[in-house]
Design a protein around this nucleic acid. Structure first.
Lengths: 128, 128
DNA sequence: TCTGCATAGTTTATCTATGAACAAATCGAC
DNA sequence: GTCGATTTGTTCATAGATAAACTATGCAGA
């Protein structure tokens, strides 16, 4: 388990560093990804649910993304409690760059592992 | 890779929650473990090195551990720049409880995996 | 309709982690 | 022996995450 944690942390740090080149972090990239895949604005609660974190985290993350100009907050016309997050054009562009970077890292890892180990890893992780 | 991160985070959260029962966190347990295994007090720099984090993180971690009464700071007689961290008796006791908890979590994971998957996981992780 | 409860988002406090800037102490080259 | 570079720990600012307390809004039942 120690090894699992250590490897995960090291890979996360690597992806984080790679994303840093375009001003993104893993957390920010995660939000952009959810919004891009939804293809539409989403209530902050749904963002929290899909990212699997508490709402107060999303508040701050969206604060920073809004400051970066990658996302903006919209009022929900149907429920005045709700705040929706929407990608800006800069956000869509940034996500495009991010996904290339992450894909490259993914390839590097799969390559380092070799097919059989990659499959084994995947299978084992599925049990957990 | 997404799966690896997700599983690692979930397991970490589980261990963290289990350790919470005795007032520990993974970070605090990590410090206690290094000190216990060293069998002696250690300079904060060495703590940082073994835990693989920056020194300012150790400063704060040791602040909190000292507040918890698990660790205390000692002056180094040979180098007045150095601050050493030493386990208190409460710290040794707490580490003992922690290690039982972590071992139980470890067993639960290995059991959930089965021998072959556990070995496969270990082998794959070793490549990374 | 009003009342009480649930939901949405924010604020605040805390923890973990990083990096930059800093003070004090040590060490090496001259 | 002194000066400059290095090392050690701390402080501060920031990012990311959680949990608790709070506000505003919506909704369901008496």
């Amino acid at each position: 388990m120690a090894r699992l944690f250590e490897v995960a942390h090291r890979l996360e740090a690597r992806v984080e560093a790679a994303l840093g080149a375009v001003g993104l972090s893993l957390a920010k990239f995660g939000v952009l990804k959810v919004l891009a895949e939804a293809g539409d604005s989403l209530p902050l609660s749904q963002l929290a649910e899909r990212i699997q974190c508490v709402r107060s985290n999303i508040t701050q993350l969206v604060d920073r993304l809004e400051a970066d100009g990658l996302v903006r907050r919209l009022d929900d016309p149907d429920d005045r409690r709700v705040v929706r997050a929407a990608l800006t054009q800069a956000g869509r562009d940034s996500f495009g760059e991010g996904i290339r970077i992450v894909a490259a890292q993914e390839r590097a890892v799969t390559e380092a592992l070799g097919q059989s180990d990659a499959a084994a890893l995947n299978g084992a992780l599925r049990q957990l």
